[in-house]
Design a protein around this nucleic acid. Sequence first.
DNA 1: TGTACATCAGTGAACGCGCGTTCACTGATGTAC
DNA 2: TGTACATCAGTGAACGCGCGTTCACTGATGTAC
Lengths: 176, 176
Amino acid sequence: MRYPAKETAAKHERIVKEASRLFRERGFENVSVGEVMKAAGLTHGAFYAHFGSKEELETVAIAYGQELSAGRARSHGAAKKGRQAYADRYLSPRHRDNPGDGCTMAALGQEVARSAPEIRATFERGLEEILAAHGGDRKEAIFRTAAVLGGVVLARAVQNPRFSNEILESVRQKLD
Amino acid sequence: MRYPAKETAAKHERIVKEASRLFRERGFENVSVGEVMKAAGLTHGAFYAHFGSKEELETVAIAYGQELSAGRARSHGAAKKGRQAYADRYLSPRHRDNPGDGCTMAALGQEVARSAPEIRATFERGLEEILAAHGGDRKEAIFRTAAVLGGVVLARAVQNPRFSNEILESVRQKLD
DNA sequence: TGTACATCAGTGAACGCGCGTTCACTGATGTAC
DNA sequence: TGTACATCAGTGAACGCGCGTTCACTGATGTAC
């Protein structure tokens, strides 16, 4: 049956949101279209009324996730205080332990590198926006983004919690 | 039929080597057991004479890849010259463009973070060995490792070659 | 050193499963008049 | 404002495919005597 246009738009948004969260938590490959639709409160068949393919959803989910990151970057500033606060949040145990709510690049960067051109282009546009949001010296913004990203990737991959905390702490200190 | 023990050991090594390369190139999920065996010059059925499961192969491949990285780290030193040369090589277009021959952490870190405890423990042991190989101040070694790793992840994910080079260059400069 | 035989790496067909995607169908919505 | 009907988001069964894994079988190797 046909549904109110408003509800359809809300469902569409829910699909993107849940996909973004699930992809960041478990990666593109470990999340099925069915799981995303279930998380959005729908059945899998309806998926193709919203997106042409899983790959298209991945693209939209990356755009959405990068937008969230750009917003967070904007809320801090280019001043030293803002930069430090940003790095402290990024390198917190909370961010490490909740990839589903965290930075898309820290969760999916490597998978994006192996993905289709459109996905990489979307990722890239997001990164440019994030760098612009950070403001200040561009080289500095790139460097700090790379450093905190690498720190979180290592802290997440490692098994020993003490070692993991040590990694976060080391990168935080060196960036201050 | 039964095969000479020496040949069997050589084949075993070939499986690990090819698996490590393929996994770094395309990720665990995008490489099938059959592909690995084919690359090693065998058929897929023989796989289970060498490993109990694909996950076991992933673990061994991570250990192998981390060992390669530790060797490369050892060949440079803790002195300033060695550190710089290491970062320059790590952040080179060549390393960016050849993940199959490159750092395991830069290729598979995020996937390892979502993997079984044994895989993460193996990754961790490798990282400890790499840090020890770098020598010097441990915090500094962790920081530099995170920064170059993040730089390569971003440089690989991005689409525009100029932007990608700019990322490598920015991280290189800031680490000098 | 020679003989008998158990071992086991390797082959290729087969299995069950989950996945992305398709499709016939439904029926309230939204539009044309 | 009321009526007629085309639209289309959503359902759930079905599809084909590739995957990890299993299995019966092979036959040279390596070992026990």
